[in-house]
């Protein structure tokens, strides 16, 4: 039996809308087996699932329509590790300021689109000691803020008036997009959280071969 095909040691990327290819590319660079997930059956046996950035209302509608929300909760109960980036973090949050929560699996409060319009999107560098010993680049696109973290949630990256990354035992959330930068550090961290062994120590994990076009290897060509 092909273990990768069955999902053992494989990380899935929810493939409904948004930054799917970018995550697949980062996982490939890390040497982690990965596959897009469009249907509930494709969750079977996965070690982890990334819910990418995109538009959270669109993603939440599609999750509900195709019963993927139930399937993800079920797989999570069965031990599936989850990571939400940006919109993914909104979907995983237990509370969402002014809106209904979607999956509601991690005890954080998020505030949607908390920085403003696209003109307020930005890039910076910061140190998240649990993830990498060096500062890593961070890209915020119309990002949400984590405004509160409950008990049992560890803050990985505190900022001035909000939290940019946090985790509990089974879920990682980042309001920024590591998949839009050359750094593989957060993907390495999540892969290890999923129980996979990944080489590379704890540096910034910058892949010199990455370019802003790298995701295009995974876009379908005609």
């Amino acid at each position: 039996m092909d273990h990768a095909a069955a999902g053992f040691g494989v990380i899935g990327v929810l493939d409904l809308q948004g930054g799917v290819q970018e995550h697949l590319d980062h996982l490939r660079r890390l040497g982690v087996a990965a596959r897009p997930v469009k249907r509930a059956a494709e969750l079977a046996g996965l070690a982890g699932l990334i819910i990418p950035g995109g538009e959270s209302t669109c993603l939440s509608r599609l999750l509900a329509i195709f019963g993927l929300d139930r399937a993800i909760r079920q797989a999570y109960d069965g031990g599936l590790k989850l990571w939400g980036t940006c919109a993914g973090a909104i979907l995983l949050a237990r509370e969402n300021v002014g809106e209904m929560p979607c999956l509601g699996l991690i005890d954080i409060v998020v505030s949607r689109n908390a920085f403003g319009s696209q003109l307020d999107s930005f890039q910076c560098e910061a140190l998240a000691p649990a993830v990498a010993r060096e500062p890593i680049p961070l890209t915020f696109i119309r990002a949400p803020k984590i405004v509160r973290a409950g008990e049992g949630v560890r803050v990985l990256l505190p900022m001035a008036d909000y939290i940019a990354a946090a985790e509990d035992d089974r879920i990682l959330v980042t309001v920024f997009h590591p998949e839009l930068t050359p750094s593989l550090a957060f993907h390495r961290y999540f892969a290890r959280k999923c129980g996979l062994s990944v080489a590379g120590g704890d540096d910034a994990g910058v892949d010199p071969d990455w370019t802003p076009h790298s995701w295009m290897d995974f876009s379908h060509h005609v």
Partner: peptide
């Protein structure tokens, strides 16, 4: 260049959408 990249990246986040 940084701002242009952020702008292309917002478009990336719209992929697969309407």
């Amino acid at each position: 260049e940084k701002r242009y990249l952020l702008n292309t990246q917002l478009a990336q986040m719209l992929k697969g959408g309407v």
